[in-house]
Amino acid sequence: MGTALRKGVAALPALSLLLYLFLSESPAMLLLFFGALVFHEWGHLCAFLLLGHPVPALSLTGAGMRLSSPLPLLPREELWIALAGPLFNLLAALAALRFGAGTFALSFAAVHFLFALGNLFPFGGSDGERLLSLFLSRFFPRAAAWALRFFRALFLSFFFFCSLFLYYLKGSGLCGVIFSLFFLLEDKKAEINVF
């Protein structure tokens, strides 16, 4: 019961964000958001399979989804896999800006750009956290664990206060406040395996 409750709580940030989006966004914007999400995961999947790994397992975390290989990853492989998702989103955003026209293209670019940027923040098991962990393990192995916790707390606090400030000034940014608040309380090890 305790484990199930922990796992349920772990998925709360992503689930609360989803619920908030369903209530506040138009259907077209929601579809664009999920299209960007799937495209992001497609980037990771392409990297996994191009590196010769078997089909990865999918699990739900507080940050959303996570693909993980049953085989151990080399640091170089983990680097490319972590980079692939944000890179795919960034390339999609740039392509839309260069070749697209109208507000749909700009919104498409904005959503993909937000995905790329958001996944590079180092908390919640994100790609940014994996990249930071790799960097710290490579160059500061003794202090890696401590430094990762420090940077995680720093970015999370920064994100929380920026969202709060934005909400106070402009009335938007509430989902950033909720998201970061949950991450300040989450149990990182609690994940729900989908398959």
């Binding site: 908030y20 989006l21 937000l114």
Partner: peptide
């Protein structure tokens, strides 16, 4: 859409 994604998208 007037939600947060739309507002952030319009700022970008």
């Amino acid at each position: 859409s007037e939600g947060e994604i739309a507002q952030t998208a319009s700022r970008i």
